[in-house]
Simulated scan of single mutants.
Amino acid sequence: MSSPHCQPLTDLVTGTTGIRAAIHVSPEGLILAASPGLASETADRWAAAMAALSAVSTEGVGIVGDLTSREVPWGYSVIEDRYGQTLVLVGSPDKSMLAVAAAKGADLGMIVGRLIELADQGHVVAVAA
């Protein structure tokens, strides 16, 4: 069985060089939508990992001090593995998350910008499973 899809994620993956896959994750770590071709089991595991990552990065910032912005309701995390592949996670104002897997050498600034744009505009909508 495949994951639920939504057009903004499809457009993001097909229209942005270097993005291999994308997911939209609830604050609880449940998959809301995934880019085409991503198996539901893979999307579910990825969603759980991204929710954990979001919690760790939020708590990590909290330990250092109150560095959260009052003007910008989202934040982002970028993790690069030793082979140059990258995970990018952007939190939306509704507390959901957008995550992409990017290929080695992808333009991360452009990718983060596209994710923030989607989050700000509310273009990624939860899709019923």
Results as ranks from 00 to 15, higher is better:
9 L>M: 07
26 S>A: 13
35 S>H: 06
73 P>I: 10
102 A>F: 00
76 Y>C: 05
90 V>W: 03
50 M>G: 02
52 A>W: 03
129 A>C: 13
62 G>I: 07
12 L>R: 07
60 G>F: 07
28 E>H: 13
10 T>M: 01
17 T>C: 00
1 M>V: 10
106 A>Q: 04
5 H>C: 05
58 T>I: 13
40 S>D: 09
94 D>R: 09
82 R>Q: 05
27 P>K: 04
92 S>D: 09
115 L>R: 04
59 E>T: 08
28 E>R: 12
36 P>G: 09
121 Q>W: 02
129 A>P: 15
120 D>G: 11
83 Y>H: 14
124 V>C: 15
100 V>Q: 00
2 S>C: 02
34 A>Y: 02
96 S>Y: 06
40 S>M: 09
16 T>Y: 05
90 V>Y: 04
54 S>Q: 03
48 A>W: 01
105 G>R: 10
69 S>N: 11
119 A>Y: 08
2 S>E: 15
48 A>H: 01
72 V>G: 04
36 P>E: 15
101 A>G: 02
124 V>Q: 08
79 I>S: 13
72 V>L: 14
20 R>W: 03
26 S>G: 09
38 L>C: 06
97 M>S: 08
23 I>D: 00
123 H>Y: 03
119 A>S: 15
62 G>W: 02
118 L>D: 01
10 T>Y: 02
20 R>S: 03
84 G>Q: 02
57 S>N: 09
51 A>Q: 09
35 S>L: 08
11 D>Q: 14
96 S>L: 04
51 A>H: 03
95 K>D: 14
22 A>V: 03
48 A>P: 02
81 D>H: 03
94 D>C: 06
30 L>G: 05
66 D>V: 12
11 D>R: 10
48 A>V: 07
74 W>A: 03
81 D>R: 10
50 M>F: 11
47 A>G: 08
21 A>P: 00
29 G>R: 05
10 T>C: 00
94 D>T: 11
106 A>N: 03
28 E>G: 09
103 A>V: 13
123 H>R: 15
4 P>Q: 05
41 E>Y: 06
87 L>Y: 13
101 A>W: 01
40 S>H: 10
126 A>P: 13
